[in-house]
Design a protein around this nucleic acid. Sequence first.
DNA 1: ACCTACATATAGAGAGCCTACATGTAGACT
DNA 2: AGTCTACATGTAGGCTCTCTATATGTAGGT
Lengths: 110, 110
Amino acid sequence: MNPDALRGHMDALLLSVVEAGPLHGYAIIEALQERSGGALSVPTGTVYPALRRLERVGHLSSEWATVGGRKRRTYRLTDSGRRQLEGERSAWRAFTSAIGSVLSPGPEAP
Amino acid sequence: MNPDALRGHMDALLLSVVEAGPLHGYAIIEALQERSGGALSVPTGTVYPALRRLERVGHLSSEWATVGGRKRRTYRLTDSGRRQLEGERSAWRAFTSAIGSVLSPGPEAP
DNA sequence: ACCTACATATAGAGAGCCTACATGTAGACT
DNA sequence: AGTCTACATGTAGGCTCTCTATATGTAGGT
């Protein structure tokens, strides 16, 4: 997967994964990989800063927890984040539709 | 359309538009807009450098022409570009599939 | 004279994703 | 005891692409 292709879609991915329930960073990375059938291997250096960014703008909130002697920062979707995710989903549909119509060869079926 | 979303998909778009036949930059911008139903308004400052880049790596070739007193640089898909376009299309399918499966809520249908 | 459409190009900014590196715990295996 | 892997978070710096803004010039209409 070309890294650049993910540009601008990372937010949607992260928000979508924490939608069902709170998750910590490491689990988010695993969930991303699992839900994409192994196609998405997003490095930690991408995910952790992105999560902080999403928290900074209010789409996520976080709290520390200690499980089995390990510290986890668990992220939760805020109301703002939920609205954002809705927007991201419709933007995604518009995006794929636009690119798809350019990429698909031949005349489109009416 | 969020500008960042196009990252890494510009090449596929440009190659796809010149697939049917040679076009010059300005016409490529119009074709992009038309074929996407108006969704894609890519600025000249994006397209012209991108076309030069694609020529530099060998996916496009260009030649100057003068039509109605105006100079045009007309781009044509090379063999390398044609192969690249094929790869871009399958990458696009993989990409939408991966993101889509993460974004779509609820359990997927088997 | 002025404005719009056509046509190409470059400089500089901005943002975000990646590679590497740094740090530390828990548990399994040798 | 020592080593290795999995778990877990984080930062610094680089890279590349897209965008904004600007520059330049022709053709044609009003």
